[in-house]
Amino acid sequence: MTYDTAARLTEILLALSFIQQGLEHLVRFRKEQILFGVRITLSLLVIAGLGGPWPLVGLALSSLVFLQRFQGPYNGGSDRMGLLALWCLTASRLLPGLKAQEVAFGYLGAQLILSYFISGWVKVLNPDWRSGRALRDVFQFSTYPVTEDLRRWADRPWVMLAMSWAVMLFELIFPLSLFSQPSLIVALVIAASFHLANACLFGLNRFFWTWLSVYPAILWLQGRIF
C-alpha cells in the first residue's frame, strides 16, 4: 500500500467515525449540536476530498474546542486515538517533503502497535490479571457491562482466566505479526474481533470504529519497514 493510498484511506475512515460520533451528539444538547454539526460538515469535506488539507486542519483545531468543552476526551481512550490519528494526519498533510510526511504518518502506525503491546504489558505485570481476578472485577462491578445478565460471567472464573490470558498474549505478541503482511492481516482481523466484542459487551462502539480507521497506517508501515 502506498503512503498516499494509506493516508487517504485512514482519513476517510476517520472522518466516517467522526460522523458516526457526531450524529450521536446531534440528539443531545444544543451546544453540542453546533459543535458536532461543524465536525460532521468538515468530515464530509474530508471524505469528498474537497478543500485540500484545510478540512483536516479545521477538524484538528475544532478538536481543541471539544477538549475545552468536555474538559478532556468525551469517551476516554477512543477519543484519544481519534485525536492522535487526526493530528498525525493533519501534520502529514501540512509538512513539506515526503520524508517528514511519512514520519508523521508512521508515528500513528507505531502508536497503534504500542496501543496493543503496552496494554498487554501493563496487564501481565498485574497479578490480578494473571489470575483472572481483574477481568472478574470488570464483569462483577465495573460500570462497563451493558446488561445485568453479563455480570454473571464473573461467576465463571475459568472462563475469566482463559479470556484474560487470551487478551494478554494476543496484545503482547501483536508486534511479531509485523514480520509479514499476511500475519499482520490475521492479527488485525483478531484485533478487530476483540474490539467488536468490547463494543457488544461493554458498549464501547467508538473504540471499534476509531481503531479500525487506523489500520491502513499500520499496513503501510509494515510494508515500509519490511
Binding site: L64, Q68, Q71, L114, S119, N126, A134, S142
Partner: peptide, 28 residues
C-alpha cells in the same frame, strides 16, 4: 487555548495503560 493544548498532550503521547488496574467503580 493553553489548557486545551495541555488536554491534547496525553492523546499525542499516549500511555495506553487500558484496564491496568480495576479501580473502584462509581455509581451515580
Amino acid at each position: 487555548m493553553l489548557q486545551a493544548i495541555r488536554l491534547l498532550m496525553p492523546a499525542l503521547i499516549p500511555a495506553w495503560n487500558f484496564f491496568d488496574v480495576i479501580a473502584d467503580s462509581p455509581r451515580v
